[in-house]
Amino acid sequence: KLPPGWEKRMSRSSGRVYYFNHITNASQWERPSGNSSSG
């Protein structure tokens, strides 16, 4: 399961899957890690 705020999306241009955070408006190709504590 993804960390809070993150969701899986697909890029229309490349067709690749990326991850988008609707809370911080951040996007990245790598899967966000939800196990590590923020610090």
Results as ranks from 00 to 15, higher is better:
Lys1Tyr: 11
Lys1Ala: 13
Lys1Asp: 15
Lys1Glu: 14
Lys1Asn: 13
Leu2Met: 05
Leu2Ile: 05
Leu2Asp: 15
Leu2Tyr: 03
Pro3Tyr: 02
Pro3Gln: 03
Pro3Met: 03
Pro3Ala: 04
Pro3Asn: 02
Pro4Ser: 07
Pro4Val: 08
Pro4Trp: 11
Pro4Arg: 07
Pro4Ala: 10
Pro4Glu: 10
Gly5Ile: 02
Gly5Lys: 01
Trp6Leu: 01
Trp6Thr: 00
Trp6Gly: 00
Trp6Asp: 01
Trp6Glu: 00
Trp6Pro: 00
Glu7Arg: 06
Glu7Ala: 06
Glu7Asn: 04
Glu7Leu: 07
Lys8Gly: 05
Arg9Tyr: 06
Arg9Met: 06
Arg9Asp: 00
Arg9Cys: 14
Met10Arg: 15
Met10Lys: 13
Met10Asp: 03
Met10Glu: 08
Ser11Thr: 10
Ser11Glu: 12
Ser11His: 15
Ser11Trp: 07
Ser11Asn: 08
Ser11Pro: 02
Arg12Gly: 09
Arg12His: 11
Arg12Ile: 13
Ser13Val: 14
Ser13Asn: 10
Ser13Pro: 10
Ser13Leu: 12
Ser14Gln: 08
Ser14Lys: 07
Ser14Ile: 05
Ser14Phe: 08
Ser14Asp: 10
Ser14Pro: 04
Gly15Ser: 05
Gly15Asn: 08
Arg16Phe: 06
Arg16Trp: 05
Arg16His: 05
Val17Phe: 09
Val17Ile: 13
Val17Arg: 04
Val17Pro: 08
Val17Tyr: 11
Val17Cys: 10
Tyr18Thr: 01
Tyr18His: 01
Tyr18Gln: 00
Tyr18Lys: 01
Tyr19Lys: 00
Tyr19Val: 00
Tyr19Glu: 00
Phe20Asp: 00
Phe20Glu: 00
Phe20Cys: 06
Phe20Leu: 03
Phe20Ala: 01
Phe20Tyr: 15
Asn21Gln: 02
Asn21Trp: 01
Asn21Val: 02
Asn21Ser: 04
His22Glu: 05
Ile23Thr: 07
Ile23Val: 10
Ile23Gly: 04
Ile23Asp: 08
Thr24Asp: 05
Thr24Glu: 03
Thr24Leu: 05
Thr24Phe: 05
Asn25Thr: 06
Asn25Pro: 00
Asn25Gln: 14
Ala26Tyr: 08
Ala26Lys: 15
Ala26Gly: 06
Ala26Val: 15
Ser27Trp: 15
Ser27Gln: 08
Ser27Lys: 13
Ser27Asp: 02
Gln28Lys: 04
Gln28Trp: 04
Gln28His: 04
Trp29Tyr: 10
Trp29Thr: 05
Trp29Lys: 04
Trp29Glu: 04
Trp29Phe: 08
Trp29Pro: 03
Trp29Ala: 05
Glu30Gln: 09
Glu30Asp: 09
Glu30Asn: 07
Arg31Phe: 14
Arg31Ala: 09
Pro32Arg: 00
Pro32Thr: 01
Pro32Leu: 02
Ser33Phe: 10
Ser33Val: 14
Ser33Gln: 13
Ser33Lys: 10
Gly34Leu: 13
Gly34Pro: 11
Asn35Met: 11
Asn35His: 11
Asn35Gln: 11
Ser36Thr: 13
Ser36Arg: 08
Ser36Asp: 13
Ser36Asn: 11
Ser37Thr: 11
Ser37Phe: 10
Ser37Gln: 12
Ser37Pro: 12
Gly39Arg: 08
Gly39Pro: 12
